[in-house]
Design a protein around this nucleic acid. Structure first.
Lengths: 330, 330
DNA sequence: GCAGACTTGGAAACCGCTTTCCGGGAGGTC
DNA sequence: GACCTCCCGGAAAGCGGTTTCCAAGTCTGC
């Protein structure tokens, strides 16, 4: 690989001068030398070695994003928002996918720490296990002790800047809206009990029903993904309205009903959560709780980069969006 | 940040010994010293500085993936496949999204070159513009001249290892299958004329129709995404069968028809290309040409890492999958 | 015409780690 | 017991940049 020294030699200048010309210094370099250096760099095809720059400058221009699953539109939207924000700051992005393994998440923080990335974004639900959460916190603390910055999209459980969707509130509002349509017998496709996002949404929903004096919903646990929703839908009893704690599960549930010839919303109403962008192309259009995913991703990046000391937690409200997948009961 | 020197000092050993213990060397270190070093590292919370390691070792463990749009399921699947493969090799992934700007793609290659990534994967269709293609080739050549490796998913236009979907063949087979159902009047939602993938699929489709002695299809250009398909579908004339050159466009077309009360497949048949995973949840189920996206991503990574000299181009055949969105004409 | 203030180029220290090269001690052989 | 290996620990030379510190010009202003 061609180095700065090669360029300097070819241009007949010192290393210092070449560095100043090519890699953004505050110092001025005379026009003649500047031109010679630029020409030499171009002829040789020079590209600065960023590893060396990072080492010398003590700061990198890379950020790390850790998500559970890139092929899930929820994470894709969040990651895309964060990546666009990063691009406007001139930052490069390293993406890690955990495939929902919390240990992987911890390992990624360690790796990104080793990479000395400027900031790490942890995107996705926390798990209820205090053990892993504690170890993740330790790993983050270690990274931050060395000057690293971090932010999280999800629950405020990590002691870092957080963009926190109001899962309980959103689910509660959804419950009230659905009850307002006359439904009284509900089922919740609740996802895994240890996933805090799933648990919060489920609890918020059930809590609102209780406040309204309605019977407790049937709660069905299972995986947090499309196939989990599909499977859980098979176990629903006599509910007139089914709440899947995220949209991809709801889409799975719709598929299950379609296959069994159960009509939505005539036979059963279905609602989800998140308002992923692909929803608009599903039939029937899915009732959900809208979260501004791209903004949340971008916002998390800004928080992570922010120098301020106090930890900031931004609550993001969800907005109930009623669509064709639910109907008013007579 | 705590450095290796801090650890060495704390353990009372030399830098060399500490390095050998902590960062994987072939050399043995005595059990006593080894334990002291490990304890010191743990107490101090040491994490190797990878920038320094990369510099010293002259090789990084990062690869770069450049895609057009992560929120498009097609790219998400390809990227996911590549990332899983990278993970099994112990490699980290840097992801860049171009949002379909070819200049961005060139810029990313330069940036990843500067990062001295082990390999770069260019995922996505080439454009027909010889100017940008030439500049991209130059940039890649420059990177490879310095020992970088590269591979591409798409057309074999870059002079690097390539995983090339058989777009023409797949589209041609699809055309024959649809003609076999009795259709004679076709429309092609053809995407942008300068996108090679779009052009190849369109040409393959039209070519097969010509061979069958059928009239040329109505060709409608537009953006290569969901909204492009939606818009293009509005312009379809009296065709009985519409081929969208990728699935997300087809999904957009389905939405357009649904809104206008045009029934698919009763009033018009619709087919796409790619077989993105989300298709299974659309109504009606979309006829398409299946591409093994995850495998292709993984395969591209393997090719990129492969040391062999000759450039290898792997053709990937597409498999026609007939589903409910098309019907046999009486 | 000259002191003093700026400007500009270069030498060299340094960033944190790897690895080669040396040297000293332990263990084996005759 | 002398000699040779073999092992293992440490000193130091890079890896490719950045940046501080100097020195030598180049401009000012009077």
């Amino acid at each position: 690989m061609v180095t700065l020294e090669d360029v300097a030699k070819q241009a007949g200048v010192s290393l210092a001068t070449a560095s100043r010309v090519l890699n953004g210094s505050t110092r001025q370099v005379g026009a003649a030398l500047r031109a010679r250096v630029e020409q030499a760099a171009d002829e040789l095809g020079y590209r600065a070695n960023i590893a060396a720059q990072t080492l010398a400058r003590g700061a990198s221009n890379v950020i790390g994003i850790v998500v559970h699953d890139l092929t899930d539109p929820y994470f894709a939207a969040l990651a895309d928002g964060a990546m666009r924000a990063a691009a406007t700051e001139g930052l490069l992005v390293m993406v890690g996918t955990t495939h929902r393994d919390p240990e992987q998440e911890i390992a990624y923080v360690a790796t990104l720490h080793a990479q000395r990335v400027r900031a790490v974004l942890l995107v996705g639900s926390r798990v209820a296990d205090p053990g892993v959460t504690g170890r993740l916190r330790d790993e983050l603390a270690r990274y931050q002790a060395g000057g690293g910055r971090a932010a999280c999209v999800g629950q405020d459980l990590l002691g870092v800047d957080t963009v926190a969707p109001a899962n309980r509130q959103g689910a509660a509002e959804l419950a009230r809206a659905l009850a307002g349509l006359g439904h009284t017998r509900f089922a919740v496709l609740a996802g895994p009990p240890h996933l805090v996002t799933a648990a919060d949404r489920s609890a918020g929903f059930a809590g609102a029903l209780a406040e309204l004096g309605l019977p407790a919903p049937q709660v069905i646990h299972g995986p947090f993904d499309r196939d989990g929703g599909y499977a859980a839908a098979q176990q629903v009893g006599d509910a007139t309205c089914v709440f899947a704690v995220n949209d991809v599960m709801a889409v799975g549930a719709l598929a299950a009903y379609r296959e069994r010839g159960v009509r939505v919303p005539e036979d059963v109403s279905v609602a989800g959560f998140d308002d992923i962008v692909t929803l608009r192309d599903h039939v029937p259009a899915l009732t959900t709780v809208r979260l501004p995913l791209k903004d949340m991703g971008a916002r998390a990046l800004v928080l992570a980069l922010n120098e301020d000391d106090p930890i900031v937690v931004e609550q993001v409200a969800g907005e109930v969006v009623l669509r064709e997948s639910v109907r008013r009961l007579p």
